[in-house]
Design a protein around this nucleic acid. Structure first.
Length: 826
RNA sequence: GCCGGAAUGGCGGAAUUGGCAGACGCACAGGACUUAAAAUCCUGCGGUCUUUAUCGAUCGUGCCGGUUCGAUUCCGGCUUCCGGCACCA
């Protein structure tokens, strides 16, 4: 066996063998339990970064571990290949997005393969290929038929740099999540998906996702933003329509002192037209329309607003209150109008102070420090009702229910639930995406393309100018279509789909990626789904993960899949940082994976990344840490090499393993403890750092044992073999090489995971601790599983303990078997 | 502002059920091998005090308090940092 650890030769050799042997190909096999492990597929930017390396290393350990434990593992990889960068490259470099993307995929696949990942490449898919987006369009049509896709004109988020509209979820702090340009509002007619229909299910199902990080579930909860309350109708003086408001605090109805409409509220024009207030109202509306969303929604901004000259009548006490407009009321939440209770709402309080409006407390504070008749700030806590007629004295929690009941009886209100979640705007005014398969017929309106005509293919005769219109409009052929209903010459939809649609179901297509006749075979999807372990960055906690859940629910309702939730377990890996900061070009602290791979090899890179931190935590890149991992692999290599070349004696290997000497027992203990630890940490908890540390301990023990005068050959051989096996999911190349040199002809990923012997983990004698008043004073070696009496007796007979307690009163003795004796003295 | 999460040596981190805090690794220091270096191997490595050294004493898991024989772990109250949401009525 070659003495030097030649990682480069070894890695090339095994990558070739795996590829030639199609080592990781999977098929449905009903006789075996399946395991679907999935890493979020990448956008083919062309360059692999450390985040990818981490993501895929984690997935690969799990995939290899599960395969060795007898599971039929599905571990696919593909490309989220529609999207803006390709199109921007087209505009800039005059290269077709398809070519740019295809080249990038090839380059990235080459880099991925350098990592030795156990993918079934026969299942590779790319969302920009016709055979994928054909089914994307098919799904769109199913959504449309189910009434879940609709077109409407609305003020939408427009990114002036990306020149397209964005979904709510893609706007971060008022800016485009991709390019950080400030987002503008535009009134456009756009396609939406009715994700709001699924708000409750998206929320309720979260409870059952035990295998998801708490954090992600909370983020989705916040995003859905469910709040229960009541809708209340107010009469408006001298006006034929009633004003509806939403409130979560019907208990404060008696404290309403004014009303506020959003400036965009349709009543504003009706109520002010021709009145003396019209001018200043219009002035205000025009002023705030120049504000950006960020300016308008800043909580630090002073409240502004204007009285519109109209009054509303409070239905519970017939009080007349003035109506204002203000930009702190949003048109797209609730009814676009609020009842203002300054005594019990911070925003209303601020507004009332500024405009010198009445503040009437209706909930009394239990805290004597707070005088509700002289408030310095809004009182939002619980308390008993005051100034509220027959409800006075009632706890305000109860009053919520009682007053709501009264509203319903009088038919001036009802219970309502509101959500922050908005419908998903899915149209994009870009070329490099799935064409929306809809046709506009001037007689029949919007009609879906016939399914037999799918896919609606992206035309190639387009120009990329980067104007604010879909490049599809420059195609001479694309627009023309025949109405599937009446045959009239019609026009196609020119927008494409948000790429988040493509990634909302790719995990299903992996189950049956080559199917020409249907989106996937039910049988195959039922066998593989759902995803047992999904791994990716936490940045997808809301967008991708909620959209994918929504898709799965709709497909479930369509009878296409048997689970409502696609991802059983989710692992959100932490970021890879350098010097405590995010790796970024501008900071100049980017570590290139390829450089590390050529210097140390894939196994070292994987080892470091898995060992340096638990997967969900941030990981700080450390060059010295990488060298440490490299050192460790060299140490393992030398150990096996020395064994194979110098120590191994084939004749002795045939003997049965008999563990006899104390040293043998030590080694056997270390071996079994390590197998147990790695099995639990790598297979269950996904704490690869501790799994690896326990393997390091075994290596240390093997080095110690190797130097002994007599070596128990069969035992040592077993320990070396098991070491190589349990290490292989982490660093597969070096282990295959070692395995081969140990004389095996099979491949490690086909080898069964070793079992451990609980008996070997039971030592003859163990060390226990003797405490006095909880402080460790002495350590004693006693027989394993000694009973409490023996433990106490041994402790009390110990000379040191004796001397320490001789002039004290023993009050109590606590003995915990195999752990400690605690003597309480006074 | 609201909602989550975290805080342990010089550093990354471990302690899975309330039971020896600091596994494993990095860095550092000393030694062995070597003409020398690299590599490798061995030893030490939380603070303070004490001792020639051993042995030992004592403090120590962000801060304050509680429960307990015993708390990094449970409870209450803070501080700081990270993340999410945010005039959402």
């Amino acid at each position: 066996m070659q003495e030097k650890y030649n990682f480069s030769g070894i890695e090339k050799k095994w990558q070739k063998i795996w590829e030639d042997e199609k080592a990781f190909k999977t098929e449905v096999d009903e006789s075996k339990e399946k395991y679907y492990v999935l890493e979020m597929f990448p956008y083919p930017s062309g360059k692999l970064h450390m985040g990818h390396v981490r993501n895929y290393s984690i997935g690969d350990v799990i995939a290899r571990f599960k395969a060795m434990n007898g599971f039929n593992v599905l571990h696919p990889m593909g490309w989220d290949s529609f999207g803006l960068p390709a199109e921007n490259a087209a505009i800039k470099n005059d290269i077709h997005p398809d070519i740019w993307t295809t080249e990038n995929i090839a380059e990235m696949k080459r880099q991925l393969n350098l990592l030795g990942l156990s993918y079934d490449w026969d299942r590779e898919l790319a969302t920009c290929k016709e055979d994928y987006y054909k089914w994307m369009q098919w799904i769109f049509i199913q959504f449309y038929k189910k009434g879940l896709a609709y077109k409407k004109e609305n003020p939408v988020n427009w990114c002036p740099s990306c020149k397209t509209v964005l979904a709510n979820e893609q706007v971060v702090d008022g800016c485009c999540e991709r390019c950080e340009t400030e987002v503008e509002k535009k009134n456009l007619s756009q396609w939406y998906f009715k994700i709001t229909d699924y708000a409750d299910r998206l929320l309720d199902n979260l409870d059952e996702l035990d295998g998801w990080p708490h954090k992600v579930k909370v983020m989705q909860q916040n995003w859905i933003g469910k709040s229960k309350g009541a809708e209340v109708e107010f009469r408006i003086e001298d006006f034929y329509k009633r004003l509806k408001v939403f409130t979560t605090r019907p208990d404060t109805l008696f404290g309403v002192t004014y009303m506020v409409l959003s400036p965009e509220h349709p009543y504003v024009k009706l109520l002010t037209k021709g009145t003396e207030c019209e001018e200043k109202v219009n002035e205000y509306i025009s002023k705030i329309s120049h504000l950006t969303d960020i300016e308008r929604s800043s909580t630090t901004k002073e409240k502004t607003g204007v009285f519109i000259g109209a009054y509303a009548i409070n239905p519970v006490n017939d009080k007349k209150v003035p109506i204002y407009i203000s930009d702190y009321v949003m048109m797209d939440y609730g009814t676009g109008a609020i009842m203002a209770v300054p005594a019990h709402d911070e925003r209303d309080f601020e507004f009332a102070k500024k405009f010198d409006l009445d503040i009437i407390p209706v909930v009394d504070s239990k805290d004597p420090e707070i005088d509700v008749n002289d408030l310095k700030e809004a009182f939002v806590a619980e308390g008993d009702m005051i100034n509220s007629g027959k409800y006075d004295g009632m706890n305000n929690r109860d009053a919520i229910a009682e007053i709501t009941k009264e509203l319903i009886e009088k038919e001036i209100g009802k219970e309502t639930t509101n959500y922050k979640l908005r419908d998903w705007l899915i149209s994009r005014q870009r070329y490099w995406g799935t064409p929306i398969p809809m046709i506009y017929c001037r007689k029949c309106g919007w009609v879906p393309e016939e399914e037999k005509n799918l896919p609606v293919v992206l035309p190639t005769d387009v120009e990329f100018k980067g104007k604010g219109e879909s490049p599809l409009k420059t195609s001479k052929t694309f627009a023309k279509a025949i109405c599937p209903i009446c045959g009239l010459e019609s026009t196609r939809e020119m927008d494409t789909m948000d790429t988040f649609l493509d990634s909302s179901w790719y995990f299903l297509r992996y189950c049956d990626p080559k199917n020409q006749d249907e989106i996937f075979s039910t049988e195959k999807v039922n066998y593989w789904m759902n995803v047992d372990q999904y791994i990716g960055g936490v940045e997808h906690a809301i967008l991708h993960l909620m959209y994918a859940r929504f898709f799965e629910m709709v497909l479930y309702d369509l009878g296409l899949v048997k689970y409502e939730e696609p991802f059983k377990n989710l692992l959100t890996q932490g970021m890879v940082n350098k010097d405590g900061r995010k790796m970024s070009k501008s900071l100049g602290n980017v570590v290139s994976p390829e450089e590390i791979l050529s210097k140390f090899g894939a196994d070292t890179a994987r080892m470091f990344i898995l060992f340096a931190a638990p997967p969900e935590k941030e990981l700080d890149w450390s060059d010295q840490g990488v060298e440490g991992s490299y050192r460790f692999l060299n140490r393992v290599y030398r150990l096996v090499c020395e064994y194979v070349n110098e120590i191994r004696n084939e004749d002795k290997l045939k003997e049965e393993i008999i563990v006899n000497s104390a040293d043998d027992k030590e080694l056997n203990y270390a071996l079994n403890a390590t197998v147990k630890k790695v099995t639990e940490d790598a297979g269950g908890r996904f704490q690869f750092n501790t799994a690896i540390s326990s393997i390091m301990e075994l290596v240390n023990e093997l080095y110690r044992y190797k130097e002994l005068d007599s070596i128990n050959m069969p035992l040592f051989d077993k320990a070396i073999s098991d070491l190589v096996i349990v290490l292989s999911p982490f660093v597969p190349h070096i282990c295959e090489e070692l395995w081969e040199n140990l004389g095996h002809e099979n491949r490690l990923f086909n080898v069964s995971w070793p079992t451990y012997d609980e008996k070997a983990l039971v030592r003859d004698t163990i060390e226990i601790v003797v405490q006095i008043n909880g402080k460790v004073k002495e350590k004693m070696v006693i027989e394993n599983n000694s009973n409490k009496e023996v433990m106490e007796k041994t402790a009390l007979e110990n000379d040191k303990i004796k001397s320490l307690i001789e002039d004290k009163n023993v009050i109590k003795i606590i003995a915990v078997p195999n752990k400690l004796v605690n003597i309480v003295v006074k």
